[in-house]
Amino acid sequence: MKSIDKKDVIDMLKDWTNEYHVLCPNKKINDDCIFDGFEQDHFTLDYGKLSFCLKSAFFPQSEIIFEVEDNQYHEVISSEKTILFGIRACDMMGILQSSSFMSRDYGDVYYSAKDDATIKVVMACPGPQNETCFCTTTNSGPFAEKGFDLQFFDMGEEFLVEVGSKKGKELISGELFTDIDSGDAKGKIAAFKKKASEAIPKVDEIKSVMEMLKNGVVEDEEWEEFGQKCIACGGCAFVCPTCTCFNVYDLARDGSGMRVRGWDTCLYGGFTREASMHNPRPTQGSRLKRRYEHKLKDYNEQDLQGGLCTCVGCGRCSDVCPVDIGILNLVLAISRDYKSG
């Protein structure tokens, strides 16, 4: 096992930038923490839960997939040797589930090229990052079980570094890292994990609502009530680590231009509307139902990478929803409405 002094982390990142594009938390305007290219003057370890998950590293908000010239399609597959430093465990689970989804049946070259070129460094959480964290309920934190190349544990003055892959091991072979007694370190990490897990409140309603949805007891009227509030901004989907729906559109002039794919969401009315104008999900309630059944019901037979469901407990949908129908308020309401019945 190895460790690194906190004061040496900046030098470590600087070293890594020689060979990799290093994405990490930077404190920017308004003290907002943004996950982007390493900047020595802005880098911070005090970043809590980032407002955005890291899916855009593999699945950008919009991405050119073909350049088209005189109606000839030339594919554009962008990828770059990248290190993601400081991934939270919930986001690591999001990456694992999304990678599994994007490679099932048919591989998605745009996603996998970036996924393959990226080294994942997880920062285990010592406790909840804000009041909406519930990763212990969804088996997706506060530390990662797999998927990472390296995982950092904060011990105050230093980080203990757990190796998850060969690539990860090579990254910490430099002199900034100190060899330490493995038995001793394992004990410290175990204590860290126990304390961290106990500090994060469980949300039992997640499991009870999953059961209710599975049994089909939640009526459409309930969803329509939530639908009355929903302003269809799509915020919950865009910050969600496991929302990977997209649309494809062309930017064209005279047969040349580009074919682009960009984030889309099932909360938008046009998402399922067919050319005939028939819409299988005609109401906002039915669209909200879709989104939450996706997270809590429909995909639970699939490859969840050890998670409970396709919600990873990051709580961001609850953080951003302007009308308080993020997953936490939603499961509390459903569980209240259907408890006795």
Binding site: M102, Y106, C245, F246, N247, D264, E293, D298
Partner: peptide
Amino acid sequence: LERMMKCGVGKCGHCAIGD
């Protein structure tokens, strides 16, 4: 069945019917 099958390969999510 008919749906708005945008990508055709099970990725884009538009044509999902339950699971």
